[in-house]
Amino acid sequence: MKFAILAFPGSNCEMDLYYAIQDIIKEDVELVSYKESSLTGFDAVLIPGGFSYGDYLRSGAIARFSPIVPALQKFAKSGKPVLGICNGFQILTEAGLLPGSLQKNVSAKFICKTEPLVVNNADSVFSSQFNAGQVIHLPIAHGDGNYYCDQETLRDLVANNQIVFRYQNNPNGSVANIAGITNRAGNVLGMMPHPERAVETVLGSSDGIGIFQSIVNNVANREVVAHG
């Protein structure tokens, strides 16, 4: 299968994702510029962390007007997997592909540390390698990771099993300890923690592999179904 990694001006985790897919997951991967207008030929899209457009105005608020975004919206609508990490999560909420928004951390400071996460939904395209209730360790690195949505949206998220990861020790003030959510269809995941930083034990954790491997397995299964 083939992953696309979108690169916006100010993205800074695109190469980390690239190496994670190429060297560890060992799948095809290509960087796609924000200036492009098509995602044809890709099986999954990853939106990396960083500070697109300096996070000026509001995190992700400028990137969502990039030429690639209509193609991204179309790709998401087609049901193929889209994973936004950190700034990628912020872009997905700004682009209307995920509900809610990411506010400044309660501490008002950037926080970089490894956090334990509870896998709340192990049935998603992104988490099928885990067991429900399993605790995994992933690094966070953000200043605006405090997930917020209104009560009605939260009820929907819970009712539709859209909350995939929750923080065990909420580090940023997120509603309902939310670390990662999907859209209603379940094919778009936004998460603040960085799975691409946790794919090698030499760097502290390899728990992130499960997320990418889940995507690979689900795409493979879809192909079997499609061709079967």
Binding site: N12, C13, M15, D16, Y19, A20, G49, K109, F110, I111, C112, K113, P139, A141, H194, E196, R197, V199, E200, V202, L203, G204
Partner: peptide, 15 residues
Amino acid sequence: YETYDTQVQTNTVVA
């Protein structure tokens, strides 16, 4: 140092 991104570029073996 908790307010610094110590891991971006994913090469930090000892933070």
